[in-house]
Design a protein around this nucleic acid. Sequence first.
DNA 1: CTGAAAGCGCTTACAG
DNA 2: CTGAAAGCGCTTACAG
Lengths: 340, 340
Amino acid sequence: MIPKQTVNMTDVARRSGVSIASVSRALRGESGVSPTTRERILRAARELAYVVSPEASRLSGGATGRVGVVVPRIDAWFYSTVLAGIAGEFDTVGMDLVLYALPDSASRYRFFEALPLRRKVDAVIVASVPLTARERTRLDQLGVPTVFVGGHHPGDSHPWVGINEELAARQAVGHLVRIGHSDIAMIQARDEEGTPWATNEGRIRGFHRQIDEAGLTDPIVVIAEWGIDGGAQGMEMLLSMPQLPTAVFCHSDEMALGALRTLSKSGISVPHQISVIGVDDHPSADLSDLTTVAQPVRDQGLIAARQVLAQLDPDAVEAPEEVSTLPTRLVVRGSTAPPR
Amino acid sequence: MIPKQTVNMTDVARRSGVSIASVSRALRGESGVSPTTRERILRAARELAYVVSPEASRLSGGATGRVGVVVPRIDAWFYSTVLAGIAGEFDTVGMDLVLYALPDSASRYRFFEALPLRRKVDAVIVASVPLTARERTRLDQLGVPTVFVGGHHPGDSHPWVGINEELAARQAVGHLVRIGHSDIAMIQARDEEGTPWATNEGRIRGFHRQIDEAGLTDPIVVIAEWGIDGGAQGMEMLLSMPQLPTAVFCHSDEMALGALRTLSKSGISVPHQISVIGVDDHPSADLSDLTTVAQPVRDQGLIAARQVLAQLDPDAVEAPEEVSTLPTRLVVRGSTAPPR
DNA sequence: CTGAAAGCGCTTACAG
DNA sequence: CTGAAAGCGCTTACAG
């Protein structure tokens, strides 16, 4: 029994012997429909494999059943994992996910000026995109609930979920200090377009604070482009200096992996001659035996999704905390050891 | 100058002194509007910062401006990279991407039975999801153009883009044979739910064909679950056999990376005691110095996106081949060497 | 609890 | 070239 292409509410109404008004109410779980009628309607809808037209629903004042999700890029472990967390939650309630990637400043500009999401979604999740005041304003003009994942605290009343970047850096550097290192360098990440990523700022701050607290002075810092190759270059910079530090804190695991590659090519033994630590617990960190500070990533997506769903329908989902700072955790592996 | 939320076509019509029919025609660039009128309308629309309501447009016969994209999962390198390719193309024409992940058979079942994409999208891209006949039928019932990425050839007239999985496997095994190996094992991937992935089948076939052609007999084959841990387990199985092969062809780089991990833990030197090769050219393959057969992944998404856009508007985009088989390429790194 | 009807903001024959 | 009007498939007061 193949359902027709164009089953609409009228078909469901006819099949269950009621008006479309009742069908509409029953389908949206509104009160004011008798249990018997509701049951009959739901069965008819199921049998016809009926799907509400989001366009019509929206046009007459309903919701779109869609949430926009904005990420800097899709093909990076962190974001694809956050997306998976969001998608998993949305799937359980039948919410659709409209995906926007803003890989460069041109696409970011277009996005915030044209606001392509306008009138198309019930809510928005913004993952780790640093916003200017102007962009913040434009986002608010969408007039829908907005939830942030990672990046800067929105400051105002928007829900946020993420980690304490500064603390994560301190956990990493603290580990190095605790096992005896006093000559600790950092490979920092830079954005070629100068975007002020909260992650960068937080981890740099944490590094310096922890160094200060340990009473160490003048740590060496090199800055390279974000990513594996950047990490490799950062380590090359360190290698070109007169003296090698005994340990290196890398902005992220991906940069640490690049650093490890450079060290391996140079025949410098890890952790024997130098300790290396990252942040994230990227899947490759395990493979490369990299010590790191793990952050829960999928959970960040999951919680952001729940936050959005709770805002849209407080009865359907229990709302997480307005601000959820998830815990990070030191994962000790073979790339760190006491200095010789 | 912040545009008001509620400017509609009637406002534009009033301001330019014409009917909404003319406004609609002028705005969509249809013929049959005098230059003067058109000019007046466009100016009014600009002054009011008018944006067409996509809902209303769709409801009265227009397109949704949305394409559904279906992937088995989001947080795996291959799929997130394909998605990035698709998203990049869509962004250039303002097409929205509605994302669906089908991580297990339950979600797959729900998806194909409920067809949540119905009436919501202008077209669909299906990435590497093996389809039953029933699922194929259901997909067709969406009644929109459908394009496939990877996986099985659709067989019928749907466009497809992917690689020749069998050839990729032969390129890998051929390399091992060429440098002198004759004792070559394979670590195959299994799906816990028994899904018949085209990738598995193609690569297994390629392995055996190439082994046969080389005149080798009775290759050892172990089967493990897809992924890094599966690869590690597969190698453990090989290590428990009386004799180690001189080379191992792994279903994918991720499985090869797991295999390398096991070897490293066992103190077995690569490529000295055993050569390891994978398929994909996953970013970690470079880091781990893994020889592999590279496939273009982003391009698969990009081409699928163009294919869809061309079907929706032949004038806007030049259509790629109906069937695009992209080339794969041997990438020799340090994990393979002639046998001792 | 249930239904008839207005209306959401467009597109598109159909007339003129 | 231009406009009046039907209609897309819903939601939501308003009645009963």
